[in-house]
Design a protein around this nucleic acid. Structure first.
Length: 290
DNA sequence: TTCGAAGGCGTTACGACAAG
DNA sequence: CTTGTCGTAACGCCTTCGAA
């Protein structure tokens, strides 16, 4: 049976990316460096040099992941506008910039102090919770199979809630079948597939993954950073994911069927603190993590 | 020409096994 | 039990390519 991952960008979210983002913002903040240029190849080459990557193609990948995470404004880097750090960064991006700066300043203390390290980690978690709430596929979970806006966090949390945990192959089954939000047909197909797998009537190997074979690498990594999901790891690869113990009110909020309606219909934006829930219960859930 | 992104490919980590 | 070797799989950087 063929397994297919959701589309993904091949970029890890880690210290390196955080600092590349900071480097990009520092570059754009300096009019002398930007030198009146719009977002063209020449500018990208200079940005590449400034943030320590080797090609403008990589700068574009970084731009793309920062956009999807809601760290920079979508299309704020384009060929018509001369960018500045202020015209590009989102409120969520400001949070990340602050976190990276804090981490740099107290880095030495933090290295020796478990408590402080833990606090920083928690701050990054709440940052990534917000980033993932707004992270979605506006053009479909997998371009080859779908064109409907899709919210991967919602789909994952919902599956984890129902099936308690997902191993790597169950994760690929989720990716293979679930391509739309709240689609009962797809959910039934996924249910059949996961039950067969759990009954050991089918087994999978790497060779069964025919599309987006790194689907297990990137999005699960993002989930882990948010603390919403935890992973049982063997060495450096994960075997099983389940809901983290914390953030239960956020998780309940994401599970609510209104969540998707609000997200896609009301232009829900955690970036700009414009969440406008129908009832107060949801709003409280989010406020705890502002 | 510029774009996004799939996946190729070099590097690294793991695990099995043998030898000390 | 520890150390060393080696084959395999995972990782992740970044090249390449189809599309616009």
């Amino acid at each position: 049976m063929e397994l297919k991952g959701w589309d993904n960008l091949g970029r890890n979210l880690d210290d390196t990316l955080h600092h590349q983002f900071k480097g990009l913002m520092e570059f754009l903040a300096d009019p002398i460096l930007v030198n009146g240029r719009t977002w063209n190849n020449s500018l990208q080459i200079d940005v590449a040099a400034a943030i320590g990557v080797k090609s403008p193609g990589q700068v574009r990948t970084i731009k793309s992941i920062l956009e999807k995470m809601g760290i920079i404004k979508i299309n704020s880097l384009n060929m018509r506008i001369i960018p500045t750090s202020n015209s590009v960064i989102t409120p969520l991006g400001e949070v990340l910039l602050a976190l990276v700066s804090i981490e740099e300043r107290i880095g030495e203390i933090a290295a020796e102090n478990h408590q402080i390290r833990k606090s920083i980690e928690t701050m990054y978690e709440s940052f990534y919770v917000k980033a993932l709430i707004q992270y979605h596929f506006p053009d479909g979970a997998r371009k080859s199979d779908s064109r409907t806006p899709f919210h991967p966090l919602h789909a994952t949390i919902k599956a984890l809630h129902k099936y308690h945990s997902l191993d790597k192959w169950e994760w690929y089954l989720l990716n293979t079948f679930i391509l739309e939000n709240e689609n009962p047909t797809q959910e039934q197909q996924f249910d059949n597939a996961i039950n067969q797998y759990r009954a050991h009537t089918v087994t999978f190997s790497k060779a069964d993954i025919t599309e987006n074979e790194k689907g297990h690498q990137y999005f699960p990594q993002y989930l882990g950073l948010s603390g919403l999901v935890t992973f049982q790891k063997v060495g450096r690869t994960w075997e099983r994911m389940e809901l983290g113990g914390n953030y239960t009110d956020i998780i309940n909020c994401i599970l609510d069927t209104n969540f998707i309606n609000c997200f896609f219909n009301n232009n829900l934006s955690v970036l700009n603190e414009e969440i406008d829930w129908d009832d107060d219960e949801h709003a409280e859930g989010l406020e705890n993590y502002e």
